Simulated scan of single mutants.
Amino acid sequence: MSTLVSTLTLDNFETLPIHDRKCVFWTMDPAAVESSKGFADPEFEKEAWLSMVMLEWGPCGQVAVRDGVPVGCALYAPPDVVPRVASFPTGPVSHDAVLLTSVRAAAGADDPASLHTSLLQAVVRDLVNRGVRALEAFGVRLTEDETDARFAAPTSPRDAPCSDGTCMVESDFLEKFGFEIVAPHHRFPRLRLELDRDHGWKEDVEAALERLLAAAELTVTEADARVPVGAR
Rank of each mutant, 00 (worst) to 15 (best):
E45I: 13
T147C: 06
D110S: 15
E180F: 08
D164Y: 00
S35T: 14
V33I: 14
L191Q: 12
A160R: 14
E210Q: 13
D110Y: 09
E170Q: 12
V182D: 11
E146L: 06
S6L: 00
D67G: 12
H116Q: 12
E203D: 14
V205K: 09
Q62M: 06
D172K: 10
V124P: 01
G58M: 00
T90W: 00
T3H: 13
P42R: 00
G139P: 12
F173E: 06
A137N: 14
Q62Y: 00
P59S: 04
L4N: 15
V24R: 01
T147N: 13
A208Y: 10
D204H: 15
V128A: 06
T15Y: 09
T221C: 12
A64V: 04
K46C: 09
R197K: 07
A113V: 14
C23Y: 06
T221A: 14
A32K: 05
A64N: 00
V229Y: 01
A106E: 04
S94H: 08
G68Q: 07
V85H: 00
D164M: 11
H199L: 07
K202E: 03
F151Q: 13
L16T: 05
C162M: 13
S102C: 07
T7A: 12
N12L: 01
A48W: 07
V85D: 03
A231G: 12
V220D: 14
N129C: 10
T15L: 09
H199E: 14
Q62D: 08
E210L: 13
G200S: 08
T147S: 06
P154A: 03
T27P: 10
A64D: 04
P70G: 09
C167S: 15
D196H: 11
S35K: 08
L50M: 06
E136Q: 05
G131S: 03
F151L: 08
F151I: 08
L120H: 07
V229T: 13
W201D: 06
A74W: 00
R158M: 15
R190N: 12
R158D: 15
A64M: 10
A106Q: 01
I181N: 06
L135V: 01
A214D: 15
L195R: 06
C162D: 13
F138I: 01
F188K: 02
A113S: 14
T27S: 11
A216K: 10
F179T: 00
T15Q: 05
A231I: 02
F25D: 02
Y76A: 00
S2R: 08
E146V: 09
R232W: 07
V63G: 02
A86F: 04
G68H: 05
E34P: 08
R211E: 14
M168V: 05
L119S: 06
R187W: 03
F25A: 07
L75R: 01
M28Y: 13
W26V: 00
R190V: 14
L4G: 09
H116P: 10
P112S: 11
